[in-house]
Amino acid sequence: MNILEIKSLYKSFGKHDVLTGLDMQVPEHSVYGFVGQNGSGKTTTMKIVLGLLRANQGEVYVCGEKASYGETKTNRHIGFLPDVPEFYNFMRPMEYLSLCREITGLTNKQISKRGEDLLTLVGLADDKRKIGGFSRGMKQRLGIAQALLNNPRLLICDEPTSALDPIGRKEILDILAAVKGRTTVVFSTHVLSDVERICDQVAVLHQGKLALSGTLAEIKASHRQGGYIIEFATIEEATSYAKAALLHLKTINVEQDKGTLIVKASDTRHAGDQLISLFANLQTVPLKFEVMEPTLEGLFTEVVQ
């Protein structure tokens, strides 16, 4: 079942078109990486899902219910972490969670237990300071705690790691990975290593549409550009191997960078066999022979350009 479904969403600010027919499906129990350049419309999309912005056209379904602009009932399924979460500085974390509790309508008993659990999860349980004295990373962690308070089926995080130091980033990613089983996570980012680390679904937003979407493995498989990386100990070896390879196999393309060769071929399987037998013929042993894997960064750049 899809926990979030967006159907041909359009949104423009004045003459500037941000979303131009965005379609998106987020399956349940996935960690969905929502990737895009700055200003590509990630935050706009999220705000429309939350009913904070009005779409020009299109529909949004959360857990099968249609979300509407303004006060939307579907928000009860959602926990939201804004990119720079801001809380009432004069409150203490537990007081803030109590306020959230009163708004989401949980009972007192449920909350004090759950509130403590969540603060422990995000490592703020022993902090009695007011929120005003919190660092950015601590606010981000409190943000996750408040977003998870009502046991949401969908957790939406808007660039949760972009403003944090490496340790803060790791903490946030660990927390997100920890809640993976309990809730579906949609998280927007432009940090690709974060995506590779915890996401199982990826979508790239470009020019108002999804330019790429699917599981990480699927995407990589579909964009595997049949090719091999061969590394030699010396440049001479590489050069002579490259010459021989070009002579034997007509349909390949060889790039040489010092001792490393990148061999691209249309029929990868066949070319691979040939390249390996060529080692025996030439009596050379490469340092490394590997199948080229597309990197997310490469895919992203390719899609966005």
């Binding site: 904070l52 928000n75 939201f80 801001e86 809380f87 009432y88 306020l99 959230c100 408040q146």
Partner: peptide, 12 residues
Amino acid sequence: RGTLINMLTKGL
């Protein structure tokens, strides 16, 4: 400051 956004997305 965006403090209200959090509350509203909680269904306030």
